[in-house]
Write a protein that binds this DNA or RNA. Structure first.
Length: 499
RNA sequence: GCCGCUAUGGUGUAAGUGGUUAACACGCCGCCCUCUCAAGGCGGAGAGUACGGGUUCGAGUCCCGUUAGCGGUACCA
C-alpha cells in the first residue's frame, strides 16, 4: 500500500500573506493536486506575542482569493502544545534528551542577531564546551525538576558522524553533527520550540512531503534528528529558492510593504489566475517556452525536480506608480484580462467600479450589454481591472479630468472652437447614431471645412474623454451615445485655447 | 568566525546523459497597422554563461580554487 501524498502550508501569522509565502503555498497545493493528495493548512501561532487574529484572517483571505483551498485545516499549532511537551518528556525518559539547568540568558532583541553571531564566533574559535548536564543521571534530573528548579529540555545530538538527507530540489545534503549544537526542545518556562513543534505536528498529520522555503534547509538536519529520536518515518523534503527584492535583498514585509502583500494584488485589480501563473514561474519553469499556463496545466506539469535552486528577484520599482509591481506580472495580468471569458472579467471589473463609486445598478439589468461591450472595447489596453475605474473613468462617469497634456496636443488649434461646434450640430442631425454614420458625417464635414479628418478625430477624442489615448474614436462615440457625445464635444469646444 | 546553498543579458527562465553563430518571455528601441494609445505582426540593441585554473578533440554543462550574494548558526519562527 502506498501512502498517499499529504503536504502542508504552515505560515506563522506574524504578518499578512506575502508573495514568498503564497508561492510556497501554491507549490504545496500544486503538488497535492497533481498527486491526488491532501493539502493541509496549519497556522503556526506559537509565538503568541507576534501572532494576531487579524493576520490569521489575512492569510486565509489571501489563500481563498488565490484559489488555494485546503483540504484539512486550518489547524492551529497552539492546540497541540501538550503533545509537544509529552514528546519531549518521552525523549528525556528514553535518554535521548536531557534537562539543562543552566540559567536562561537574558536577550534583548535589539542586538540579537549580533549576539548570536558573536556567541557562535567565540564558540567556533574556542571549540564547543560539552554541556555539563548532558550526562546527569535521570533520577537526579527528575528530582531537581520536581523540587521546582527550572530547566530547558535539550536534544542529545551525536558527537560524531554525519547527518544526511536527500532534498527533492537541492539534492544530497550533508552536515557534520559536530556543527549542530544540542538544540533546545522546550524552554525553561515550558514553551515548546519551533523545531520540536513542527516535527511533532508533521508526524501527527502524517505529512509525506515537507515543501518550504530554503531558509529552513540547514535546520532540516536538526528536524531529521528529532524524527529519528521519536522513531518516526522521516518525510521527504523539498526546499524552495527564496524570492528576493531588487538588489538581492530579502523580501521583507516591513521594508517593502504593500507590494509584497497578496491582498494588494487583489485590491489593485489582479486576476487570481494571473498572479498564480506569475508566481509559478518564479523559481520554476515547465521546461518549454510557454509563459501563459492555466491552473489545470500547472497541476499537470509541475514537478519539484524542475524547481530552480537559485533565488529569484521580484523586480518591482517602488518609485513608478504605473509600474508599481513587476512589469512581467503586469503584462501577464493584461494577457489574462484580454484572454479570459468576458463573463469572468465582468464581475472583477464590477468590483473595481463599485470601489470607485462608479457602479450603477442597471449594469446588471438594462445596461448589461452596454457594460459588456464597453469592457470588450477597453480591455485590450488595460493591465489591471482597476485601470477600468481609473483610466476608464470617462466611460463610466461624466465627472472626469481633462488631461492638460492631451488638451495641449489636440485642442489647442484655434479653429477647433467653431469646428467642434459645427461637428456637434452635424452629429445632432444624424438619423441613426451609429459608428459608420458618425464616421461618414465627420469625414464629410472635415472635407467641407478643408481640414484633415485626423484633426477633428483627435480633438473629439480629447473632448469626449479628456485623454489623448484610447479606443477608436467612433467606438467611443457609440459607447457614450449621442447625447453625451454631443454635450461633451460642445464642452470640449469651450476648452479650446484654454491652455 | 564556522557550516551550508547559489551564480546564464536589466528581470524571469531554456539550453535531455558535455557537441555547430547561447534560445524564449518581460522590459527597452524601431518599423508596420492606424484617428491616438494599446493589442497584434515584424525587426533591433542587450549575456559569451561571476572570476581563475584544470579535464576533454570539444564545457554554460564535469572537477578544483577564488569572489560575491543568500541562508543558518537563538530558551525566534
Amino acid at each position: 500500500m502506498t501512502e498517499s501524498v499529504r503536504v502542508r502550508f504552515a505560515p506563522s501569522p506574524t504578518g499578512y500573506l506575502h508573495l514568498g509565502g503564497a508561492r510556497t503555498a501554491l507549490f504545496n497545493w500544486l503538488f497535492a493536486r497533481q498527486h491526488g493528495g491532501v493539502f493541509i493548512l496549519r497556522i503556526e501561532d506559537t509565538d503568541i506575542q507576534r501572532s494576531s487574529e487579524q493576520m490569521v484572517q489575512g492569510i486565509l483571505e489571501g489563500m481563498r482569493w488565490l484559489g488555494l483551498d485546503a483540504d484539512e485545516g486550518p489547524f492551529f499549532q497552539s492546540w497541540f502544545v501538550e503533545q509537544h511537551r509529552a514528546a519531549a518528556r518521552k525523549l528525556v525518559e528514553e535518554g535521548k534528551a536531557y534537562y539543562d539547568f543552566t540559567p536562561k540568558e537574558q536577550t534583548d532583541d535589539r542586538t540579537l542577531k549580533a549576539k548570536i553571531v558573536d556567541r557562535a564566533r567565540a564558540q567556533s574559535r574556542a571549540g564547543k564546551e560539552p554541556n555539563p548536564f548532558r550526562d546527569l543521571p535521570l533520577e537526579e534530573s527528575l528530582r531537581r525538576v520536581e523540587a521546582g528548579e527550572s530547566a530547558a529540555i535539550r536534544l542529545k545530538v551525536p558527537e560524531q558522524g554525519l547527518s544526511r538527507f536527500e532534498d527533492d530540489v537541492y539534492g544530497a545534503q550533508e552536515r557534520d553533527y559536530s556543527d549542530i549544537e544540542d538544540l533546545v526542545l522546550i524552554r525553561s518556562d515550558g514553551h515548546p520550540l519551533y523545531n520540536l513543534s513542527v516535527v511533532v505536528d508533521d508526524i501527527e498529520m502524517r505529512i509525506t512531503h515537507v515543501i518550504r522555503g530554503q531558509d529552513h534547509l540547514t535546520n532540516t538536519h536538526k528536524q531529521v534528528l528529532i524524527y529519528q529520536a521519536l522513531n518516526a518515518p522521516v518525510p521527504r523534503f523539498a526546499h524552495l529558492p527564496l524570492i528576493m527584492a531588487p538588489g538581492r535583498e530579502k523580501l521583507s514585509k516591513r521594508k517593502h510593504g504593500e507590494v509584497v502583500s497578496v491582498t494588494t494584488y487583489r485590491d489593485r485589480g489582479f486576476v487570481p489566475d494571473a498572479l498564480v501563473n506569475f508566481l509559478a514561474l518564479l523559481g520554476w519553469s515547465p521546461g518549454s517556452d510557454q509563459e501563459i499556463i492555466s491552473r489545470a496545466e500547472l497541476i499537470e506539469k509541475f514537478s519539484l525536480e524542475a524547481v530552480n535552486k537559485s533565488s529569484a528577484i521580484f523586480n518591482f520599482n517602488e518609485k513608478d506608480p504605473r509600474d508599481w509591481t513587476d512589469p512581467k506580472a503586469l503584462w501577464m495580468n493584461g494577457e489574462y484580462i484580454r484572454a479570459m471569458p468576458l463573463d469572468e472579467l465582468l464581475p472583477l471589473v464590477g468590483d473595481q467600479l463599485k470601489q470607485f463609486g462608479l457602479w450603477r445598478d442597471e449594469y446588471e439589468s438594462t445596461s448589461r450589454e452596454w457594460l459588456a461591450r464597453t469592457i470588450e472595447v477597453l480591455r485590450a489596453r488595460y493591465r489591471t481591472t482597476q485601470d477600468f475605474a481609473t483610466l476608464g473613468r470617462p466611460y463610466f462617469s461624466d465627472e472626469f479630468e481633462y488631461d492638460p497634456e492631451a488638451v495641449r496636443k489636440n485642442l489647442k488649434d484655434e479653429r477647433l472652437k467653431d469646428l467642434l461646434a459645427g461637428l456637434a450640430n452635424r452629429l445632432a442631425s444624424l438619423a441613426d447614431f451609429t459608428h459608420n454614420a458618425a464616421e461618414s458625417a465627420l469625414r464629410a464635414y472635415a472635407e467641407e471645412q478643408g481640414v484633415k479628418p485626423g484633426l477633428l478625430i483627435n480633438a473629439a477624442r480629447t473632448a469626449l474623454t479628456g485623454q489623448a489615448v484610447g479606443p477608436g474614436m467612433f467606438e467611443i462615440m457609440v459607447i457614450l451615445g449621442r447625447d453625451r457625445t454631443i454635450e461633451r464635444i460642445r464642452r470640449g469646444a469651450a476648452h479650446t485655447g484654454t491652455l
